[in-house]
Write a protein that binds this DNA or RNA. Structure first.
Lengths: 228, 228
DNA sequence: ACAAGAATACTAGTATACAAGTCCAAGAGT
DNA sequence: ACTCTTGGACTTGTATACTAGTATTCTTGT
């Protein structure tokens, strides 16, 4: 008994997935970019097998487009997909925030306030990297309060499309402040047990992405797939 | 020029996916069943590569559980996952059916009636196989009328969990008739441009799965994952 | 110069070989 | 009889080799 726990090194595919996904979301790899299994495997110093597994998964998420025997490309942004993703998120989170209000207990209020305090320093520092997980944590908390924690996986799925637009559109410097102010208003309405108010602000909050979509369409129209 | 179009034979993985998915949904492979990549590949007469790809996708869908270095199993039914899937579907389709009513045009009414007529013979014959696609087609039509056709992919995703319960619970002989009657009432309310009525019946319609869940829990409790 | 066709250099799909972790059971030692 | 150890038979993870389809480029004939 050495007391030493040998760590399993994480599967290569898991690491590759996180890295490539982030590169696409942040725009390091722009929509339309060609990226073959062989070349990416060589670039990352691994074999095609895990790369192929990652490509398949990202294709299912709508971030890659695989054309058999031809090539793989970073998927163009589908305006329809983005709009419908926003619709799904708004529909689900507006309903769950109502439920959160109805089920809220005193200790939940404290948890919500704690989430805000975790976000505040990131906002003041203009630190997007730190803000994103704290942002998600608040939304997860509200869903948990609603008693539907498992639907976060569905929201995460559609949120992928929205996050990519957010990243690519280069939100302005005061964006963090705006988002945070809306978070404060939502939490305030929840603590006041005002379901209508909380839902209204949540709806407004989740519709701010539309301005990002419009800005991106104006500045980078070639990122979008033809609407057909 | 021969006029003969050489068909690309469909990728093996695609075929494997459809077959294995159906086997799991229908219960030919019961929850908890062990199924290794090697054995299934041998059984299907293909190599591990496409089998592995299919396993990953089904694991992402929550139909398989892959334990590294140990084995792969047909996933147990998660009561939480099923309930939250129902919640997502109800939330989305209740909202879209309202929108369908608001946007409905005369030619849409005809399309809805046509879908009912397509379902009727399957109901009279007690033909589940023929009914399922006609059932889905009606729901897709309503979503299309709402102008949100793309959210069907989200609904399909959560619907997987619900369909499995439906299959495994062995719905009674008169189930088709009940479902069809609800379809008729929904279509009738849409044609009457009664958004509240249509939404109410849709909600009732999508909650019938709860009786299937209860029946399955009573008859096959070992199909379910411990709730923790 | 130009158009048609053949060689070439890619691509993803599939098969196979090897590596490493896990579980179970048989057997040795006490 | 019981415990511990050790070996073997699994499992999935990864690497590599081969197949077949596609697009481009270069050659060839006019």
């Amino acid at each position: 008994m050495t007391g030493l726990v040998l760590e399993h090194r994480a599967p290569i595919a898991r690491e590759l997935y996180a890295v490539l996904r982030q590169r696409i979301l942040t725009g390091a790899l722009e929509p339309g970019t060609t990226i073959s299994e062989t070349s990416y495997a060589g670039q990352m110093g691994v074999s095609r097998t895990p790369v192929r597994e990652v490509f398949r998964r990202l294709a299912d998420e709508g971030l890659l487009e695989v054309r058999p025997q031809v090539g793989t490309y970073v998927a163009a942004i589908s305006l329809t997909a983005v709009h419908d993703s926003q619709f799904v998120r708004e529909t689900l989170e507006c309903r769950t925030v109502r439920m959160a209000v109805e089920r809220a207990r005193p200790e939940d209020d404290a948890a919500l306030r704690a989430h805000l305090e975790r976000q505040r320093p990131a906002v003041l520092a203009g630190d997007y990297i730190a803000f994103f997980p704290a942002d998600e944590a608040l939304h997860v908390e509200l869903i948990r309060m609603a008693g539907r924690a498992a639907i976060w996986s569905v929201i995460q799925d559609v949120k992928t499309q929205l996050d990519r637009v957010r990243y690519l559109s280069f939100e302005s410097r005061d964006w963090l402040g705006k988002i945070f102010a809306e978070h404060e208003r939502i939490v305030e309405r929840v603590i006041a047990r005002d379901a209508d108010g909380a839902e209204a602000i949540m709806r407004e909050h989740l519709r701010t992405v539309f301005t990002a979509i419009e800005r991106l369409m104006a500045s980078k129209p070639h990122f979008f797939a033809p609407s057909r």
